[in-house]
Every structure is written in C-alpha cells, then in structure tokens.
Design a protein around this nucleic acid. Structure first.
Length: 945
RNA sequence: GCCCAGAUGGCGGAAUUGGUAGACGCGCUAGACUCAAAAUCUGGUUUCGGCAACGGAGUGCAGGUUCGAUUCCUGUUCUGGGCACCA
C-alpha cells in the first residue's frame, strides 16, 4: 500500500465525524482539561497559513492530554458580530447575517481540512440569538449590580437601594468623585433618598451600576461611523483603516471596569501568563499611588483668593521643590483665577489647544503653555508664591487635572521650566546637575525647609501624614485605565435589553430575552451619530418595550467574546448561560492560546466579566484563564517586481542601482503574488496571465536570463499578495505534513516569516515513516514489512529515548523540537532495520497528536480495531536507557582533548587513575601531575594542569 | 523617551540545572541506482591552515567571574514588540 495521504485523511476525517470521536461529555470520572483557542472573526478572506498556527498547537496539546487520560474540552466557535460584515453590507447590499454565514462555511471547510479534534456540537456563534440571549442576560447582571468598595465585590443593586434607604450614601460615595447631584452636593441622607423622585433615584443608581449609561467624551470615527475603544485608537487614528478619530460627547454605555482595577492586578499573580503579557496589562491599568494636596491661591481677583487648587502627585516628598504649577487648559479654575493682564494670552492659548486635533497633540509634543497671572501658596512655606500656568501637557482626565511641578525631579517639568525661563530650585543636591531632571528616590533632601537632611522615602510618609493631619490633602491611588465604552452606533451587534421610559433606562425581564436584532434592509447610520436602529421607528416603539423605547445603539465586538468560554461548557442550555454543574466541572480554561493583540482588550474584559459573575455567585472561579500562551504571528514574505515608471518594462532586482532607480529612471515597486514566484525567481509566463492578463504586455530586463524579485517581510494580507492558502498545501502534501511543518518552523510563541521551502523535508519524513511499514518494490507494488519480532534492548533504547524527548517537548510546548524527535526516531529505526510491531505501535501513539491521520491509518494496519485516539500514551521507562558505562569527554584546562569510556559506577579515585593512564592525557599534561581532576558524573572530566 | 524580549552556519532553528556549540530540517555538494529524469539511498557541509592525522579561531561587540560561559555579571550596538505627555 502506498502513502496516499489525500484518501487516508479524507477517510479518517469522515470516520471520526461519523463515529462522534470528538464528542466530549460533561460526565466523566477522568480528570478534566480545558484547551481553548481564541475563536476567530470569520472574515471574508478565509484562512491563511498564519491562522492555524495556534490551532495546531492547541490541537496537539488537546490530543496529547486525551492520550494521557484526561477528559479534554476543546471547542471552537465564531466571533461573528463585527464591523467588517456591516461595512460589507453597506457597500454590497448583502445582509451581515448572510455574509457571515457564508464566511463561517468557508472557515469551517478550511478548518476541517487540517483535521482538528474540535467537538463541533459545542460550536458557538456570538451572533446567534440563542447565544446572545445570554450575552444580554449577563449585561443585565452588570446593569443590576454595583461595586461595593468595602467588600471589593459586585453586589446586587437592590442591596444598595436598601443601604440608601437606611443611611443614604454616606458610606458609599459616588464612584466618580466629580459627580454632583443636581442642585446639591454629592452626599445624601436616607431622608433625602426617600424624597427624591423616581427619575432622580434612577439617575443616582446609574452612577453606581457596573454597566451604566452616561454622557462622555468618546473616540468618534466619522469614517467608520462608530465609537472606538481606547485600544482601537492608535496615534489618533483608527486601528482599522487608519481614519481620523476625534473626541465627541455622546450618550454611551460603559462598563465600570475601573472598580476592578485592583482585583485585575492581583489576579495576575494567580495566573500563568507570560511576563510580557502581565506587564502590558499592568501598564494599561496604570496604578500609581501618591497624594492629593491642596494649595491656596493668591491672585489679583478677590474671588481667586478664596479658591484653592488640588493637585495629584506621586512625589509628595518633593513638595519643597515646587517651582510652578500647571493646570489643564480645560480646568474649571482657569476662568476664575486668570488675571486681567493675562486674560488675552490665556484665551488665545485655550483657543490654540482647541484647534489642535488629538492626533497633532500626540504626534508633535511641543512645549506650550500660558501663565494665568495667579499664584499658589506652598502650604509648608507660605512665603513661597508659586506661579500657576496652564498647559496641554497636563491632562484634564487624570488625577485632579492639576500638578505641582518640580523641575529638578521631573523631565517634563524641567523642559517646561527651561522653555519659559522659570527659575529651578534644587532639592536633591549633587543628584541634580542642572542639565537634566533626575527622578531619583534615593536622594537626601536639601533646600527643603523642615525636610532638610531627610531621605526622600522617609519624607514621603512624613508629608503624607502631615497633609492628612492638617486636612489639606490625602493619600490617593490613581489608575490610567478608564471605564470601558460599551456601546456602538452600529447595527451588527447585540441589542441592549433595555427600555427607556421618561429618560430612565430599565432592564427588560429575563423572559423577554433574547431581544432579537430586527431585520433591516437598509442599515445606514442614523442622525447625529445615532446607530442604524434609530431609523427603525417601528422597532424602537414596539410593544416589547412596554410603552417605552428601545435602545438604538448596540453592544461592541468584545461583548460576546467576554464570556464565550463559559458557553462551550454547556452550549445548549436554555435555562441558563451555563449550568453551575457544568461550570464547576470544567472550571478554568487550563490552556488558552491566542495572539498578543488582545492583551488589553478581550483579555481584560473577559477577566472582568468572570470576576463579576463570580461575585454574583453564578460561577465558582474568578480568573477565566489559568495558563495563556501567545502564539507568534506568521508574517508574509512579500515579493516585488519593478516597473519603469510609465512603461511596461520590468527590471530584475539585481540591476537596480543603490538609489532605487534603473539608469536614473524611476521604478514602481509592485507587489506580486508569492505563489507565482519560485524563491526569488519570477515565473514570467504565469505573471503575464496574472490578474486576468493585466501584465500580458510586460517586457523584462533580465539578469542571467532570470527575473529576480525584490523581497520584504510584511504582515500577511491579501492586498500584499503574500498569503499562502493552507488548502493548497493540504492538497499537495496532506494535513499531517502541514500540521507538522507549521510546528517545525520554530517555537510557537515566536513570530516568523512563512517559507514554504522546508515543507518537503517534513513530507519526506512521513514517507520515510511509512516505509517502516511498507517496502516499495521495483514494479511499483508494496509489501508489508512490519513484523512480530521481539524488540531488542537496542530497539527499546531508541524508542524510550524518543518517548522521553517527545513527552517532555510536548509538555513544555516545544513542538518544533518535538517534531525533530520524531525525525530522529524514524531515522534510527530505519538504520536499525527495526520493523517490529511492538515498537511501531508505540511510535504511532506518540505520533497521534501531531499527525493523527497517518497514525490512525497505520495503527489499524497493525491490526488494531479501536482508534489510536483511545490508545494510551506510551509510558517512559528509565530502565531501557540505563547504561553501565559511558563515553566521557575529557578536557584539559577546559579544552576538549579526548573521550574515554568510564563505568558509571566509578568513584572519583578510580576515574583519576584511569585518566592519568590515558596516553592522550599524558601527552597533553606532558607527564606532569595535574593540579586537579574534576569529574562530573554523567557529564565530563576536566583536568587542570 | 520608557519598559520587555531577542541576536548562534548560506537559511529556519537545537543545546532542560554553567560541562563535546551547531541537534533536526532546508539549501548546497559529491556519489549510488537510471539511457535519462523524478523518487530513494550514502557521504560531505561553521570557518581558517593542512593531502590527511590534526591544529587555530568561533554563539552581535568589549570586558569580568569560573578549571570550564551560547548559558551567569557589567557595559555597549542592533533588531523586534509594547507603552507613550498618566504628574
């Protein structure tokens, strides 16, 4: 029989499907293991070779764990709501549901080709009402709860109402400290609460809900007609498409993720994520601790003298080094403190700041500002009057929107002082050289009045205590992270299960879910930045909302993906998002594989949702992912042809001058499909047919009769013509070869450019493996050559060395060296002419996770009637590797000079005698007695002369 | 600018705790089989000197610790990734 991989793979894929080989039960006495891939967004472009990298790795691991006796959950689904489908619908008039279904079909066919062991009965699609019913339900849990800062957990909002009824909000001030009740302050009593009307009460509750609706500045992208999350904006333009993004005030839904900041940080210590990933999340949360301090103001206006300004600083110890103050241009004090003399300058400056787009502000960091004419008084030295400036480098949204500037210790303050010629005082002695600011914490303070001679770290506590004692400030922790915007002015997303009645948002009841997305033919945006649903009067006013109105925005892309790993545990449950029994059994995801691009988006949101569901008692764990592995990106290796501008002549790469021209003529650099280039050499006839003959008239200026293309490593994308379709490789080499080759390319975590060249080597290996079972005769027929002979110690040594290596490599996710292990094994068995069933069968079990199809086929060839999927992973036995003696490297002064066969049981003394008797050693030591003989058992012998 | 990761043959990459650097594969090359090709097999392949045995150098660069360093330490260059006025 020949190695006809195409028919073998088809046969077993069908067989596994029909026999339900991958069906996983929630009831098992085996230990559980949950292996999860980040589910894909089914884009229209289909899969390229980069996508399956992580899927193959997780598939190998899942299969390996199954062989090791675990009940393995390994599901797959689709993140099916999203912008591209909607954009496509607007451009082509095809409903997102239709194009999404079509794309999913393509994805599924491509995935099936590769032979994954997913339990497709558990498939989820976030756009399916049966699924998003529960997304809506979880949203209502968030809407219906608040974060109790004393218990540090989410609790039902009904509990908060009880608290308000009995004591007002004295112990639970508004989460956003700048919130003011209409007309009053921000503290109310139980009596106040009872007197508030319904609308006010609801407005107050909205300030506490974990999912809340408010007005806020959002990142508005006109071109996409949508609001973007902070992490979807890069350098002031949208991550997707690069369109400009501006700040706009809109009514938005938010998740109060900031309340979970501390728990999200603490949780990182309990999970196995890469240090880089933990750091990214830590930086994103951006916790800093310091103090808020109040400075009195002295200004020209009498009103100014009654004001004070509150600053946030992480360095209260430097308070005596404050040379000026800066407040954000948007700060509410600006108006009341500016002196008449400075009025024009300040107004002009504010005007200038407003004229600068977010993008300009970020890209060109100019040192700008204006003096307000007012001064602040240092609370610890009332003789010091500190000028107050405004500048765009102080952000209104962080801390108090005002800072105390200490130029000798802070780089930005230093540059500002230099630029505006503000005198700089030095409080850190020799640590400050007058050239650069020095943010050290290890200096001893000088020039600091009552703090003189005190180390900075001590001064920090002292100042903190002092300001609290005097009531002019308090210790304060701040976070960079903002609440997450949770609505999109878009159609293709989950509708909010909310009804608006007299301006108040109420939850729909559980039995009204799912609130289905109404079918709409025209999904163009509504007026004033409202979503397409705002055009659908009929739906907005439908009886579903009981006389109220529906919500016209929809949930963002990350809503459905924040909890999908829970649905897989119990995908068909109609009563709950997932039964408690199921979530208790499967518990955390043991291994999660996906790209780093979700570091601060999806991974933070899903961690928060998990924590909230845990707090409310719906699940029994508060971190979703126990271990996270980030697969690297497979980059494309692009190819270029060079056309002389304005002609049809193409110049080979080697003929181009260093200045990028050809004989002084300008060249157009054009991406060419990598599939019509062999290495670097262009297939000219295929190039002429390419793109329906667009280049049929091309003429070529060749080097050595070849057209050589330019090359560059870029992101893999259709538009760069550098994508390689896995389907083609599967047809040509088979799924097993493809799987093993993707792993062989290098460590899973590493990014690397795709190169199809080496795939032949892996394919040869599988053919060689096949020849351990079948011999090819000269007439083309094959003969089975595997036999029932008893394995020799030498055979078993080969086998068990491989078991040890492959088991270890698989366990530690080193699949590239794992594949090497197989190659060595097959090479050694071939050399040893070992065709013994006893050995081969174990080898196939080892191989099954990596190359399941060929393993299954040959496993049956050996006469097994059950599937290799249900075999047991071979047990490594040390005894086969035990040696009595070993070739030791012998080095002299650290240099390897010879080898010697030494018994493993030999003692230091015996080894020394043996070594000294060795002629090579005698030659190198020139007969002298060595100073020392170092013998490391199992490793080496070194002689020091 | 700040933080993190990395740098090993012509190429992808091995080397698990400091112990024979370059496993495995690609490519190249010589040979076997063949009329020929493909496929397959065998040998060679870090580099320098040498017919060879053998010897010298060698893991981005400069130092250090050690009998011994790709591995540990200090400095430095480059590459990739993340963050970027967060006080």
């Amino acid at each position: 029989m020949e190695y006809n991989f195409n028919s073998i793979e088809k046969k077993w894929q069908l067989h596994w499907k029909e026999s339900g080989a991958y069906k996983v039960s929630n009831e098992s006495n085996k230990p559980k293991f949950y292996v999860l891939d980040m589910f894909p967004y089914p884009s229209g472009a289909g899969l390229h070779v980069g996508h399956p990298l992580g899927y193959i790795a997780s598939d190998i691991y899942a299969r390996y764990k199954r062989l090791k006796g675990f009940n393995v959950l390994h599901p797959m689904g689709y993140d099916a709501f999203g912008l591209p489908a909607e954009q496509y619908a607007i451009e082509h008039g095809i409903h997102p549901a239709v194009s999404t279904d079509k794309n999913i079909e393509t994805f599924r066919r491509q995935l099936d080709n590769i032979g994954f062991c997913y339990d497709w009965d558990r498939e989820v699609r976030t756009s399916d009402p049966k699924y998003y019913r529960w997304t809506q339900w979880i949203f209502l849990q968030l809407f219906g709860s608040w974060f109790n800062r004393h218990t540090q957990k989410a609790e039902p909002i009904t509990d908060l109402i009880k608290i308000f009824e009995s004591e007002g909000n004295i112990h639970h001030p508004f989460p956003h400290s700048d919130y003011q009740l209409p007309g009053t302050g921000n503290i109310f009593s139980a009596a106040d609460w009872k007197n508030f009307d319904e609308a006010t009460q609801q407005q107050i509750l909205m300030e506490y809900r974990l999912a809340y609706c408010g007005y806020g500045e959002v990142n508005w992208c006109e071109a996409l007609g949508t609001v973007l999350a902070n992490d979807e904006v890069v350098n002031g333009v949208s991550e997707r498409g690069g369109h400009p993004v501006v700040k706009k005030k809109l009514r938005q839904w938010y998740l109060r993720i900031t309340e979970y900041a501390d728990r999200l940080l603490e949780g990182l210590q309990t999970v196995d994520f890469s240090e880089a990933m933990k750091e990214m999340q830590t930086n994103w949360i951006g916790k800093s601790s310091g103090a808020e301090i109040e400075f009195k103001i002295r200004g020209e206006k009498t009103s100014a003298n009654e004001e004070s300004v509150r600053v946030y600083t992480t360095r209260p110890d430097t308070i005596m080094g404050v040379d000026f103050m800066v407040i954000a241009p948007e700060h509410s004090l600006v108006k009341s403190i500016t002196s008449s003399e400075q009025e024009k300058e300040v107004t002009d400056y504010i005007h200038y700041v407003n004229s600068r787009s977010e993008r300009e502000r970020m890209s060109e960091k100019r040192i700008t500002g204006a003096f307000t004419g007012a001064y602040a008084v240092n609370p610890f030295d009332e003789t010091r009057h500190i000028p107050i400036w405004i500048s765009e480098y102080v952000l209104a949204g962080y801390g108090t929107g005002a800072i105390m500037a200490v130029p000798c210790g802070d780089e930005r303050d230093f540059r500002f002082a230099k630029h505006f010629n503000i005198p700089i005082s030095n409080i850190i002695g020799e640590h400050f050289n007058g050239e650069d600011a020095n943010p050290t914490k290890d200096a001893v303070l000088s020039n600091s009045g009552f703090l003189d001679g005190m180390p900075m770290r001590e001064a920090m506590d002292l100042v903190n205590n002092e300001i609290e004692k005097r009531g002019i400030g308090k210790r304060k922790v701040n976070y960079k992270m903002r609440d997450a915007a949770f609505s999109r002015q878009r159609y293709w997303g989950e509708p909010f299960p909310i009804k608006w009645v007299n301006g108040v948002a109420y939850a729909l009841s559980k039995d009204q879910l799912p609130l289905e997305l109404p079918a709409m033919d025209d999904i163009k945006p509504g007026k004033d930045g409202e979503g397409p649903l705002s055009n659908n009067e009929e739906w907005l006013n439908s009886p579903l909302f009981g006389g109220g109105q529906g919500e016209s925005s929809t949930m963002p892309g990350y809503a459905g993906s924040s909890w999908y790993f829970l649905r897989y545990m119990d995908p068909h449950n109609e009563q709950e998002f997932a039964g408690r029994q199921a979530t208790d059994y499967w518990n955390q995801v043991d291994l999660y594989i996906g790209g780093t691009e979700h570091a601060v988006g999806h991974l933070l949101y899903s961690r928060m949702w998990t924590k909230a569901l845990y707090d409310l008692g719906h699940i029994g764990f508060d971190e979703p992912f126990k271990r996270l592995v980030n697969q690297g990106m497979i980059q494309g290796s692009s190819r270029f042809v060079f056309r002389i501008n304005g002609t049809d002549q193409f110049v080979s790469h080697g003929l181009i001058s260093d200045d990028g021209t050809y004989q002084g003529r300008i060249l157009d650099k054009i991406h060419v499909d990598v599939n019509i280039v062999d290495g670097f050499e262009l297939d000219i006839s295929r190039f002429k047919q390419w793109r329906n003959g667009e280049y049929a008239q091309a003429e070529f200026i060749l080097e050595e009769d070849k057209y050589i293309c330019g090359a560059e490593v870029e992101k893999m994308s259709k538009s760069k013509f550098n994508t390689v379709n896995p389907d083609d490789l599967v047809v040509k080499y088979g799924a097993d070869t493809f799987r093993m080759y993707e792993m062989f390319l290098g460590p899973v975590e590493m990014s690397k450019p795709w190169d199809t060249k080496g795939i032949e080597g892996v394919h040869r290996f599988l053919k060689k493996l096949w020849r351990l079972f079948y011999k090819e005769n000269t007439d083309g027929s094959t003969t089975a050559i595997w036999n029932e002979e008893v394995a020799t110690p030498a055979d078993l040594k080969i086998l068990h060395r491989a078991i040890k290596k492959i088991e270890e490599d698989t366990e530690r996710f080193s699949f590239n060296t794992g594949v090497s292990g197989f190659m060595i094994l097959v090479n050694e068995l071939t050399d040893a002419k070992c065709h013994k069933r006893e050995v081969l069968e174990k080898m196939l079990t080892l191989l099954a996770p990596y190359a399941p199809h060929i393993a299954e086929e040959l496993y049956h060839v050996l006469g097994n009637s059950h599937s290799v999927l249900d075999a047991e992973f071979p047990v490594f036995e040390e005894k086969y590797l035990v040696e009595t003696s070993k070739e030791y490297p012998v080095s002299i002064n650290g240099k390897m000079r010879t080898t010697m066969n030494i018994s493993l049981s030999a003692e230091q003394k015996e080894v020394e005698e043996l070594v000294l008797a060795n002629p090579v050693v005698q030659k190198w030591t020139e007969g002298k007695l060595p100073k020392k003989i170092i013998y490391v058992r199992n490793k080496m012998v070194n002689i020091v002369v």
